[in-house]
Design a protein around this nucleic acid. Structure first.
Lengths: 333, 333
DNA sequence: CTGTTAGCGCCTTCAC
DNA sequence: GTGAAGGCGCTAACAG
């Protein structure tokens, strides 16, 4: 590997001139610029990023922090993809930090020494040691997913879960459904309460009483979904079910099939959140473009770092509702 | 951020002593060690990774290179996860480089200047510019997925696709199937020919003639799968179908359903490669632990870097065959 | 406009 | 056993 020194010698100029040529930091005559460039090419020279980083106190690396959720969900992959590709576009590198469950950041409070200019943190937690550490060390942060109240002053990015649940519920109501069961995500997550808000909003806008017993909670596994679906379907009380994800919807499907219940004839199903393309049966659902979310996060962190933008809280509204045969119309009330 | 200088002053020792304490590189008396450690703690000092890297010519970062396949497959996610978590364990960081399709490494031949000690490259290509560049710059590489012949001397890691296809086919044969259609992956991929080898091997071991017209090719999209399945099912010639993935298997399922063909009554279905948990209907399939593959790759690259291990070609045999209701027994021949 | 000089923070001989 | 000095490769004043 050749260094700036080699180039300066070959070109017969000083190191700083070479540096200036490469960084456009000062005017250098065209002739000398040419000589430098030629020498650099001949020596196959490229600036050493570590040295540059050390001198500039800037690494051009962003940490992307996420938790290994056991089953790493599709949403995360899309975000990772969006973040990495966008950041690469901006000439930043992405360092991936995946925590183990319940083992939050093995390196303890040493995060601040990671060679990064900023951090993107997925699914921040109420008492997030990573955030604490970055805040105290002044590292710029972007939070993806609902930001805990205690960190409202930080930049964050999320999809509009209230709006999504609202739209979904409204769509069902438009189709004549009133008794709508809601298998929501795990309790005490912000996303869960947001979804509930959207659900309630749609009901009340349509003068339908909210019935708390219609609300269930479930995590994203097909086994639990089936079990829960069993008891819900047995009640025979509902004309539609909203589920927290397509995986849960599949559980409902399976359970319905084994009970001889027809979808959408007997009950309609709508999923909040889908993994898109490979589903069968195709359930009505809302699909969020998480890759775009990742891209937006990437853009946000670079804006903070490079244009020292103030912190901002973005709510992305990029989703679409896909209505398939899983939702039917209720004509007789 | 405090530096080694601050610590040395506070502790009343020289910089090199502090360095020695932190790196166990020379004996330092217990008393002084204590003083240094205490000073470091008080100042919240940690070595600057960039400076360390510059001085050591080692960055403790590994590049993980992959291509954005449009639909980023689950296999990739598992590998990423395995690589990142394992490498973190070894105190390495992972930098994620995701190429756009057909835009192989935008940075051209500048890869060598990435601040990495080694590279893990997923799905290497015959003429892989990334590999070329790393080889010429002496950067250690581990290839994940079938390594092109031209790079056989490099370390690589793959699952045993011959064996997998062989086992799958054998299982079907054991269940009485002889006319087995094979929807293989895209032609001219090594995995495709390996799978074919395994398929043929199982046939010939059981004295079943290989019939080339039983072989089809399909990429991993449900639409194409359905179309292809349509023509295969119409032939009515087969008692079983092996598909290249569970997505393709789903296409077969859907097509069968719309044609009133019963699985496994009329035809059995087996998928080579599965996304596991969220499938419905549950298709018989082979599941490969790609996370382990990623972990193994991580281990391999660190062995090369830290213990300058010779290059090695590992074939991982961690898969399991899951037989569900999608495969039936053929009794009458 | 160009070159000299002094760091960035750390590691590592090499004397003491 | 410990410390002083030089260097990793680059950038940023500051002179010239």
């Amino acid at each position: 590997m050749s260094t700036i020194n080699d180039v300066s010698k070959l070109a017969g100029v000083s190191k700083s001139t070479v540096s200036n040529v490469f960084n456009n930091t000062k005017y250098v005559s065209e002739e000398i610029t040419d000589r430098v460039l030629k020498a650099a090419q001949e020596l196959n020279y490229y600036p050493n990023k570590l040295a540059t980083g050390l001198a500039n106190k800037k690494t051009y690396m962003i940490g992307l922090f996420l938790e290994n959720l056991g089953e790493f969900r599709s949403m995360h992959h899309q975000i990772i993809e969006g973040v990495a590709m966008k950041l690469n576009e901006f000439n930043y590198n992405v360092i991936l930090y995946i925590d183990r469950d319940n083992e939050k950041i093995p390196k303890g409070a040493k995060l601040r020494i990671e060679p990064i200019d900023g951090a993107i943190i997925l699914d921040p937690e109420i008492e997030d040691i990573r955030i604490k550490d970055f805040v105290s060390s002044g590292t710029p942060i972007v939070l993806v997913g609902k930001a805990p109240k205690s960190y409202e002053n930080l930049s964050s990015l999320d999809v509009d879960n209230i709006e999504i649940a609202y739209s979904a519920t409204k769509m069902l109501i438009k189709n004549g459904h009133e008794k709508i069961a809601f298998i929501n995500s795990k309790p005490n997550l912000t996303i869960t309460s947001d979804r509930l808000k959207g659900y309630i909003k749609a009901l009340s806008e349509n003068q339908i009483d909210f019935e708390p017993s219609y609300i269930y909670n479930c995590d994203n596994t097909i086994i639990k979904a089936k079990k829960l679906a069993g008891s819900i379907l047995e009640k025979g009380e509902f004309s539609a079910i909203i589920t927290e994800s397509d995986v849960v919807a599949l559980g409902v499907y399976e359970e319905a099939k084994s009970k001889g219940i027809n979808i959408p004839g007997d009950i309609s199903v709508f999923a909040l959140g889908g993994m898109d393309y490979f589903l069968t049966p195709e359930v009505s659902r809302v699909v969020v473009d998480y890759k775009k979310l990742g891209e937006a996060a990437a853009k946000q962190i670079t804006m903070i770092i490079d244009n020292n933008q103030q912190s901002s809280n973005l709510i992305l509204n990029e989703y679409k509702i896909i209505k398939t045969g899983s939702v039917g119309q209720v004509s007789i009330r």
